[in-house]
Design a protein around this nucleic acid. Structure first.
Lengths: 106, 106
DNA sequence: TACACCTGAAAGATTCTTCTTACACGTATA
DNA sequence: TATACGTGTAAGAAGAATCTTTCAGGTGTA
């Protein structure tokens, strides 16, 4: 269950942003759809859209397009139940899966 | 034991970088001084210096300037024994300590 | 038709990170 | 003195991330 270096980097850089941290925190209180979430947090919808993509690409949240009762297309996002345990040795473990730094000796 | 939002963001963005991940991984195997560590990882010393500062500012590593037997000033770095437990609710907890997004209604 | 709500995405400006290069200072040894 | 090792820092190039603006599509109701 140790993530690979790439997976770990994706999660870390996805979480290393105040807005995205807020988004995850908000979604931790329950699923929500894009427009409402944007109003809730107080940012523009296109900006939120970008951050949601980043979080979803990292596997921290998942979205599903659903049809509301009055026929509107609503995209709901919810938090994936992740549990990252970060210690120095856990990081060292993950780093092993990374390709070596390309350094050539001239 | 839950870090504040700022502390958490500092740690996350410090770790969200392949080189810095490598540095921590390397130091997890034992303390080392700057020049040697730079050769070990295969990057320039000034670049490593920058990354070390970032990691130290986040509280993940600590450095100490020591004098070697032959009188040289050596800066040794070692890993701080951190243990970050990241879950959605832990993040939500940390986010509470962040100042609200400054959004004004016109 | 017009408006309100929902969705997606591209283009461009700005700002932040990252990296290189070059400099300055120290001690010990040939 | 010159070289090799250690330290630090500042300036500018290059790249990546962030954010705004603008556009285009959809459904339902007045």
């Amino acid at each position: 269950m140790t993530p690979t270096g790439d997976e770990l980097l994706a999660m870390l850089s996805a979480l290393a942003n105040p807005l995205r941290l807020r988004i995850v925190a908000q979604l931790a209180g329950g699923r929500d759809y894009v427009s409402h979430l944007a109003r809730e947090i107080g940012i523009s919808r296109p900006l939120l859209h970008m951050h949601l993509q980043r979080l979803e690409a990292a596997g921290l949240i998942v979205g599903s397009l659903e049809l509301s009762d009055d026929g509107k297309a609503m995209k709901y996002y919810e938090v994936v139940d992740f549990d990252l345990h970060l210690t120095a040795s856990a990081l060292a473990e993950a780093v092993r899966t990374l390709p070596p730094t390309d350094q050539e000796k001239p």
